[in-house]
Design a protein around this nucleic acid. Structure first.
Length: 457
RNA sequence: UCCUUGGUAGCUCAGCUGGUAGAGCAGGUGGCUGUUAACCACCUUGUCGGGGGUUCGAGUCCCUCCCAAGGAGCCA
């Protein structure tokens, strides 16, 4: 049994092969029936030519409709018609599973992405969502390749955690208690972990532990936010990549992030060319050019202070006026990378008042060694920083933030014993898939999107 | 959560200033042709998102709830 991808990439005319897949469309022509089948291995379908002489032609072949599963045995021949180089001349065609045409929701026509979202169990059978699946898998593997090639170790940080990474949003509570037990004060003392636990909002703090023993590590896994966000770039469950590097300052952190993004874009351009062509044509015009730009042009670096100056002199009315000290709004971010730079922009050294406690204080003590990478169409793809490695300064900032120093004693210990400058960042994997496929809604780049009020299976 | 726009056939949509619904595609039947968004002819399909109200009469106006999309906030 061969995949359609193998057959089409390396066609051996005259070879006898067997394939299995699902019918995308069927067309009759005189004594022939053309059946296009897909097995998901690649974007292209394989055209099967079934002749009237097949024993089950009237009974089975003529009743095939979109969605039916079939096995075909036959000879790979050069195609006499335009549209495909080779086709499979069927000796046998066996129906494996029928799909009732009256009720099967997918038709041989374009469907809206909104409609496909309502049938998440079937949408991966379409061209666009099928292509997303392949690109996502390629990116996932590419991430591991990139880090392994660069001396990183993967660390599996916990999904259930009792430390909420301050500033990273609302946590889902994990409990073994019954709903009525939760009502009383101090209920979590009797809970499974004897204190309040939740689903991780970030693996960063735990990744820092391993950066300070293995120097270069990364964590990559599901992350959860119980925020009531209803946007095209937020999910309640998403995958986050978080590298953490010892002996690495903000510069080194930014270099790694940029090199990694360029490397991943390059891998997908190489390995998923047909899928990217589809996105370029039907999903996001100009995508391939934008990806080439991201891969080949250096990102623009801008300090927060310079970004504010840039925005202040902008010949444009912003809904939210710009002033040093405010957080950049989506409209500001968009202006910076879409109209000023035209490439991803790395904004650095934000005011300390708008960033979390663990970011390293800059010399003037007004800003921190933070960096956000903003990309056109999406906004913040990466958020990272050099971490505060100086015990006294970190402790002071934790106190300011109102954190329980006992709870975070282990985090302070990392600064008491062999502390070193270290840095890291978080990258939203689905946003990366959005960037690379041009898909506008984050719900279309994850197999099973979890959003407020939506978790069907 | 807030703002805006929507919810009409399986899908994508039309339906003017209120008079109980239509197209294309899909599906079915027949025909034709190495077809490829196949083509031609004929046929089927609707609690007009739910509930309430105004009116002789509501897909159309009002209220309310639900859902979706786009934008905002939160962030990755």
């Amino acid at each position: 049994m061969r995949t359609i991808k193998e057959l089409l990439n390396n066609p051996v005319v005259g070879s006898h092969v067997a394939v299995q897949g699902w019918v995308r469309t069927r067309r009759d022509s005189g004594s022939l029936s053309f059946v296009e089948i897909s097995d998901g291995s690649c974007l292209a379908n394989l055209q099967v030519v079934a002749e009237e002489s097949l024993a089950n032609y009237d009974e089975d072949v003529k009743s095939l409709t979109t969605g039916c599963a079939v096995k075909v045995v036959g000879e790979l021949v050069a195609s006499p018609a335009k549209g495909q180089a080779v086709e499979l001349k069927a000796d046998q065609l066996q129906v494996i599973g029928l799909a009732d045409a009256d009720s099967y929701p997918l038709q041989k026509k374009r469907h809206s992405l909104e409609f496909l979202r309502t049938i998440s169990h079937l949408r991966s059978r379409t061209n666009a969502l099928g292509a997303v699946t392949r690109v996502r898998s390629t990116l996932n593997f590419g991430i591991h390749q990139f880090f392994q090639e660069n001396g990183f170790f993967q660390v599996q940080t916990p999904v259930i955690t009792t430390s909420d990474c301050e500033g990273a949003g609302e946590m889902f509570t994990v409990t073994a208690l019954e709903p009525d037990q939760l009502k009383k004060d101090g209920a979590f003392a009797d809970d499974f972990f004897h204190k309040r636990a939740g689903l991780t909002v970030s693996g960063q703090l735990q990744a820092e532990i391993f950066a300070l023993s293995h120097s270069r590590v990364y964590t990559f896994g599901p992350t959860f936010r119980a925020e009531n966000s209803n946007t095209s770039r937020h999910l309640a469950e998403f995958w986050m990549l978080e590298p953490e590097m010892a002996f690495c300052d903000l510069q080194c952190n930014m270099q790694l992030a940029e090199a990694m993004i360029k490397d991943l874009v390059g891998r997908v351009l190489e390995e998923c060319a047909p899928d990217l062509d589809l996105f370029n044509k039907f999903i996001s015009k100009g995508l391939l050019n934008r990806l080439e730009t991201i891969k080949n042009k250096p990102f623009v670096h801008l300090s927060y202070t310079d970004a504010v100056k840039e925005l202040e002199k902008a010949d444009k009315q912003f809904e939210f006026p710009v002033k040093w000290g405010i957080d950049l709004q989506a409209e500001h971010e968009r202006y910076l990378c879409e109209e000023v730079a035209g490439v991803p922009v790395i904004v650095t050294n934000y005011p300390k008042t708008i960033k979390p406690f663990y970011m390293r204080l800059d010399d003037g003590e007004e800003t921190v060694a933070a960096m956000d990478i903003l990309v056109p169409g999406i906004g913040e793809l990466v958020g990272g920083s050099q971490r505060e490695e100086r015990y006294d300064l970190l402790k002071a900032r934790m106190e300011e933030a109102g954190l329980d120093l006992e709870e975070y004693g282990w985090y302070l210990d990392l600064r008491r014993y062999g502390t070193v400058p270290h840095s890291g960042f978080g990258l939203g994997f689905e946003r990366l898939v959005q960037l690379i496929t041009g898909m506008q809604n984050i719900r279309d780049v994850i197999p099973f999107p979890r959003t407020p009020g939506n978790a069907p299976c």
